[in-house]
Write a protein that binds this DNA or RNA. Structure first.
Lengths: 219, 219
DNA sequence: TTGATATAACGTGTATACAAAAAACAAATG
DNA sequence: CATTTGTTTTTTGTATACACGTTATATCAA
């Protein structure tokens, strides 16, 4: 990847830290010390600070003035809040997509589902997650609502690490494929009711699974 | 308000610029030059830059690397996107509030509506806007979903300047009172259907009004 | 006058310096 | 031994310096 056009360091740092937090490499509660991070990443404090400001606004980092930043704790309540909102927005997206999706996008959607299916047996979770993201992103884009897309992507990313857990289960993957295809058919037939039911079940299943994971984690 | 505990300058600057943008004092397209702002506000570039990073993430400011920040242009499409999402989330909030609101909050809600009513004839638009915000905030809080509250407040603030326009119309104010009261009754009776219809009309009316304003503005 | 090119002015990106708060530690006192 | 107080260290908050890209200006040739 020698593309590497100029990106301000703050964005590089932002992406780096963001990934690290979402993937669980930086654990909740862990302190983010500017000088340490600066040395670690080979930059000065300035880009670090600016990145932290952004992470703070995204809710991934908790700032305590004069005390510093730490990776935000995510309680079960927080997750539940996110999932409730996400469900609402996903249904909204399904509605808009149902009304607005074009035939090309429907084709893309079908192919995305096949792509995901082809990865059923892989153990490259990153790739699997990406295929899932790609599928849903086609729906998001079909809503033709930039703000909605932005919010949904954000909410989804907040749960990256739990989604990864979910995808480890091969049976879960199979039902995902079925749900994807059912969703595709519903959108193709412009069957709003059906699409929303599927999305709802889709999310609620994840929700259930994630909550299980959490309470298991905190034994 | 001599409470005034220590707030980092970045937050002071952030709030200041945010207000200025939302109230239209800083106009879309206007450049935000760090040194100029720093002198103007009597601080150094550092807090200015950090505030700009935050505004950027909120979408109020557009950054072009190496060229600087400017107040984001809001197109009619953008506004429409925001309003679509907002409608969806308001309905969601109405649902949760309907299920979860307690009797104390119902009392607060009633009082908030009376407070708004008492300001029907004022020309202190700020106060009027605040009373409206307070009313809706009680509903938001009743959802018991911090994330939802955060998103709704954010979306609402994005449209502050247009809401102010709307409130200038005294007839609009009267219908707002009626809608507020209708909403209060629906919540009290836990009538979800009704509550959602009211909220939908409430928002759609604003939506219509704002869109009118916009197209009028850009004659 | 027009257009190209050098150059100066300006503004952002990044690093660093310094001040002040918070935390950690040590010594002294009861 | 516990607690308090003073000191040192660490870390953040803010200001400033310098590097470099971008834009504007001026100069000169056609």
């Amino acid at each position: 990847m020698e593309e590497y056009q100029f990106l301000p360091l703050r964005d590089v740092v932002f992406n780096t830290l963001r990934q690290a937090i979402l993937r669980g490499e930086l654990k909740p509660g862990e302190r983010l010390m500017e000088i340490q991070l600066a040395n670690q990443l080979g930059v000065s404090r300035t880009p670090i600070r600016e990145a932290i400001r952004m992470l703070e606004l995204e809710g991934l980092v908790l700032m305590i003035p004069r005390k510093g930043a730490q990776v935000a704790q995510i309680t079960e309540k927080d997750l539940n809040d996110v999932l409730e909102v996400r469900l609402g927005l996903e249904e909204l997206a399904a509605r808009f997509a149902c009304e607005r999706i074009g035939s090309e996008a429907l084709g893309d959607l079908y192919r995305a589902s096949r792509k995901f299916e082809s990865l059923l047996e892989t153990d490259d979770l990153q790739a699997l997650a990406k295929a899932d993201v790609d599928f849903h992103d086609i729906i998001y884009q079909a809503t033709d609502n930039a703000r909605l897309v932005q919010l949904l992507n954000n909410l989804r990313e907040q749960m990256y690490r739990y989604r990864i857990e979910y995808l480890k289960d091969v049976r879960a993957r199979r039902s995902l494929v079925e749900e994807h295809d059912a969703l595709w058919r519903a959108l193709k037939e412009r069957n709003l009711q059906h699409a929303q039911v599927i999305i709802r079940e889709h999310i609620e299943r994840q929700q259930k699974n994630i909550v299980d994971n959490i309470s298991h984690e905190e034994k």
